[in-house]
């Protein structure tokens, strides 16, 4: 049984062996197998091709395949390491590894930086921060005047941009996060510690040992 299933899995595009992924991430082999159960559900929700398309990602996050969101888009883009428009299983596991409670804090800080570096210039620029604040206001239906938004962005930049060159570099970001650790709170998903409990169906169907 394990052999047949293992062959089938290997035919999935982007499938990588759980032992390899476990060695490169904070996950155990069992947890990677459980993540594969989740991945199968997400990646076959709209198009049954074993790859997570942007609409499937949106559907999983918002229960709505058409709901675009700046931050969800950025996270999708960061997960899509190959930049081919889909998230493969290996990309999914490696990216989620950063969100594991045991992942290095430095990795979480770096991931958050890349998330905010909208135009991927290597810096978080003032205009990017303003764009994100405006996107959030739009998302939340909160109304703030242009002046208030400018003040919020200025104050934040005033503290984070210690060199005063109009952009936040990775070192400044690291320093800023150390003063405001809540900034990376969303970079930890407690669910990942209990992933095998969330997907218990895997436990009775595990085949790592037998196929090896």
């Amino acid at each position: 049984m394990g052999c047949v299933s293992s062959k089938r899995r290997k035919q999935e595009p982007g499938y990588e062996e759980p032992t390899v992924l476990a060695a490169e991430t904070p996950f155990t082999v069992s947890e990677v197998e459980a993540l594969h159960e989740l991945f199968k559900k997400l990646s076959n929700a709209i198009i049954a091709d074993g790859l997570i398309h942007r609409e499937e990602f949106q559907l999983a996050l918002f229960r709505n395949r058409n709901r675009r969101n700046l931050f969800a888009d950025r996270i999708f883009d960061l997960f899509d390491v190959k930049r081919n428009g889909v998230i493969e299983f290996g990309e999914f596991v490696r990216s989620l590894g950063v969100f594991h409670p045991n992942a290095p804090v430095a990795d979480k800080i770096a991931f958050a930086f890349r998330l905010y570096d909208l135009r991927q210039t290597g810096f978080i620029e003032r205009e990017e921060l303003k764009e994100m604040v405006l996107a959030l206001l739009h998302e939340s239906d909160l109304a703030l005047s242009e002046d208030v938004v400018e003040t919020i962005v200025d104050k934040t930049f005033g503290e984070a941009d210690t060199q005063g060159d109009g952009k936040i570099d990775p070192e400044e970001w690291k320093e800023f996060v150390s003063k405001h650790p809540s900034l990376i709170k969303n970079m930890t998903l407690p669910y990942l510690k209990d992933i095998t409990l969330a997907f218990p169906s895997f436990v009775v169907r595990s085949e790592v040992d037998e196929s090896d």
């Binding site: 989740l38 559900k41 997400l42 999983a60 996050l61 918002f62 969101n69 700046l70 931050f71 969800a72 888009d73 950025r74 996270i75 989620l96 969100f99 958050a112 998330l115 905010y116 921060l129 994100m132 604040v133 996107a135 959030l136 998302e139 939340s140 003040t151 919020i152 962005v153 104050k155 934040t156 503290e159 984070a160 800023f176 405001h180 809540s182 900034l183 990376i184 709170k185 969303n186 998903l189 669910y191 992933i195 969330a198 997907f199």
Partner: peptide, 25 residues
């Protein structure tokens, strides 16, 4: 209290909260 734009974004954006990936699956 200092109004931190990044805290505002990270605490309020639904697109930033990946926990929904694990819920109701």
């Amino acid at each position: 209290k200092f109004f931190n734009a990044f805290e505002f974004i990270s605490s309020m954006s639904s697109g930033f909260d990946l926990s929904s990936l694990f819920e109701n699956k």
